[in-house]
């Protein structure tokens, strides 16, 4: 227990404390730091570019969280009801594969797929939709959704596998009883599957929302925050501020704000789950 606590304190708690401390200073990372009070936080909440990055994160929740969880539910339900054991195992492995692929590799592969001469545009041209082709990651209108699509691809497998595991724990007798009462598939899903998966859904939402709010690697690899500021997210901005602008204090303040936002987003989900578990 003690070694684990020591490691946790050293590598998690101590950096958090230091980050909070730096947030109140103006520091270039080398020369002595200067106390600036809340000035860095004021900048975070008044600089439209920094606020914009937070907006992008919220938009990414749609792609990183809502789509994978919703699609994951649909896919898991179909696999649970329809597919044979062999097909189900194969589909599970295929869907989970993106979790195994390093995000950097996924980012590079997707930037090829979404490039102007990539597979997506070639397919669109082949089916007569050449007019809508574009460099998806280089277009202001589509860059953020395209980054979101990569995130959805990565997280769909995780959600599906988690939800499938949850479904296997639901008592089959409940479905038989419902069928005897004349319930159809939709009623079964709404009355048995969904309530039975509440904990798994909470885990999925928690993990994916955190992934959306703290996104860095996929964005860094695929767009570096461009074009313009179209895909800049707080994680990337913190990196830029700390290592390129050498404004460690401002970067720390943004990191603290991001941490608070993550906690605020996750806390209600955790409370709801716990309440449900208690009842």
């Amino acid at each position: 227990m003690l070694p684990a606590l020591t490691a946790y304190a050293l590598f998690v708690l101590w950096p958090i404390v230091k980050t909070i401390k730096y947030a109140f200073y103006s520091w270039d990372g080398i020369l002595p730091a200067k106390w600036v009070g809340l000035a860095n936080f004021k900048t975070v909440f008044t600089d439209h570019q920094l606020l914009g990055t937070l907006g992008h994160s919220l938009e990414l929740i749609i792609f990183f969280s809502i789509i994978p969880v919703t699609l994951g539910l649909a896919v898991a339900t179909v696999m649970n009801r329809v597919a044979s054991r062999r097909i189900s195992s194969t589909a599970r492995a295929v869907l989970f594969l993106p979790q195994v692929v390093p995000l950097v590799a996924a980012g590079i592969a997707w930037s090829w797929v979404l490039s102007s001469s990539g597979v997506v545009n070639e397919v669109l041209k082949a089916i007569g939709l050449g007019g809508v082709t574009r460099p998806w990651l280089g277009d202001f209108g589509t860059a953020l959704p395209a980054v979101g699509l990569i995130g959805a691809w990565v997280l769909l497998g995780l959600c599906t596998v988690l939800l499938l595991a949850g479904m296997s724990k639901i008592d089959r007798a409940l479905y038989e009883a419902a069928q005897l009462d004349g319930a159809g598939p939709v009623r079964e899903f709404l009355s048995i599957t969904l309530p039975g998966l509440r904990n798994e859904i909470a885990v999925c939402v928690t993990v994916t929302v955190i992934a959306a709010l703290s996104a860095f690697d996929i964005v860094y690899i695929s767009t570096r925050g461009g074009p313009g500021y179209a895909t800049t997210v707080p994680g990337l901005e913190i990196y830029q501020l700390a290592f390129f602008n050498r404004q460690v204090g401002l970067a720390s303040a943004l990191a603290v704000v991001l941490m608070v936002i993550v906690i605020l987003a996750i806390l209600p989900i955790q409370l709801l789950t716990r309440k449900d578990g208690d009842s």
Binding site: D139, F140, G225, G226, P227, G228, Y229, Q240, F244, N245, R246
Partner: peptide, 21 residues
């Protein structure tokens, strides 16, 4: 400056190219 390329020029000329600035 150290960050003018990454933080100003690059996004601005990308916006210019896209007709957004």
């Amino acid at each position: 400056t150290g960050a003018i390329y990454a933080q100003a020029w690059t996004p601005e000329v990308q916006k210019l190219f896209a007709g957004q600035e």
